[in-house]
Simulated scan of single mutants.
Amino acid sequence: MKKLLHALAAAATIAAAPSLAKEPGTPTMMPSGGSIGVPVGANPPPGLYFIQRSEIFRSNVYSGDTELPIELDVNSSAQQLHWVPGFTLLGGSYRGMINIPLVHATQTAFGDSTSESGVGDVILSPLNISWMLQPGIFVQSGISFSLPTGKFDTAPGAVNLGSNAPAAAIDIGFSYLRDGWNLSAHANYIMYGENDDTNYKSGNEIMLNWTAMKDLGGFSIGPVGYFRKQVTDDENNGFAYGGTTSGRAEQYGIGVGLSKRFGPMELNVNYVHDYHVRNTAGGDKLLINFTTPIGKP
């Protein structure tokens, strides 16, 4: 159960931070690295779970490979409820989830700062299924939907907490949980709808998060990281941003993760540095996940 509780913080359930990837000044559906440190292939035992996922992100904005004089600081906290009712679907364990992000973002450009606080885009994940292939070896797949509930402003330089467009993601996860190891990989394909206020449609993205942590007796530690790449071009069907589109975003980061259990609760802390950034915001992240069961199904 110790390892399985981690599975609740999968990337498809995590609030995004504002950046200049995709449509300028709007957040991605999922932040890079959302499920690092998590055995994403396995659902936890039946029950109702609460997760608070916090992120501290200090970054600079890049146009192409060039760092711009624009800083983006984001402090976010995603409140999540996960429901594992204990029945099987398609031969696997079923899980449902809702994610409500609270975000404070500050953008500093050429000496001027703009801040915004509030609720970001809410994510619903109604279908997640996990299959045990062998004892300690799991695969998972699911689908998530992002609702345009976060603040959006068309003013130049605005710090937006939402994308003002629907989005959906399909994902697949794998976890090897034997001999104290958490070897996990989590792939997502993210698809964006059109922003009705700007007639801008962001390109689709792939994101891969990975974990290689080992239980050393009382705590687990090991390297973690992510890779993100935009695979289709943006489309500008209006006159916003002068009719131009953003370039495709790319990003990869590597860091270290630490997990420890306190009775029925678990704390997971990850630090990641971006070593490659293109057409997005990149820098340093501190990701903190707190998981606790709050009831039976």
Rank of each mutant, 00 (worst) to 15 (best):
F145D: 06
I129G: 07
D121P: 11
A240D: 05
G37Q: 01
V38I: 15
V159T: 06
D73P: 08
G47V: 13
I51S: 05
T88Q: 13
N188Y: 13
W83Q: 05
P46A: 06
S54M: 08
Q52D: 08
G173R: 02
L177S: 03
Y49M: 05
M97V: 15
V269N: 04
H276K: 14
S259V: 13
Q79K: 03
T66P: 01
I56L: 14
K201H: 01
V61D: 12
L4S: 10
Q107R: 15
G283D: 05
G217M: 12
A155S: 11
G136K: 03
V122D: 00
L267D: 06
T66C: 01
G238T: 01
G242P: 02
T108M: 03
G162I: 10
G255T: 15
D73I: 02
D73S: 09
K151G: 02
I221G: 13
R278Y: 05
M30G: 04
M265N: 14
F290P: 07
T66I: 12
L208K: 07
K296H: 10
L286Q: 05
G253M: 04
K2T: 09
N236I: 06
M1F: 02
F110T: 08
L89P: 02
K2V: 02
G142S: 09
V119P: 09
E250F: 06
V256K: 00
G242A: 04
K22S: 14
P297W: 11
M30N: 09
I190A: 05
P45C: 00
P45L: 05
A167V: 04
G295L: 07
G41L: 02
N195D: 10
S54I: 00
T149A: 04
L216Y: 09
I294R: 02
T211R: 01
F57R: 13
D234P: 01
M207E: 14
R95Q: 15
R228C: 00
T232G: 00
S35H: 11
N209H: 12
V231I: 15
L267C: 03
K3L: 12
V40S: 15
P27Q: 03
E235W: 00
S35M: 06
K2A: 13
F57W: 10
N43S: 15
Y176P: 12
N204W: 04
K151A: 02
G282N: 07
F110V: 08
A9W: 04
R53V: 06
P46D: 07
S63P: 00
G136S: 04
Y94P: 08
T13Q: 12
N279E: 15
G203I: 08
Y241C: 00
E116K: 08
G243C: 11
I288V: 14
Q52P: 06
P39E: 09
L81C: 00
G41Y: 05
I137R: 09
Y62P: 09
A16E: 14
Y226P: 04
G257P: 02
W83I: 14
L267A: 06
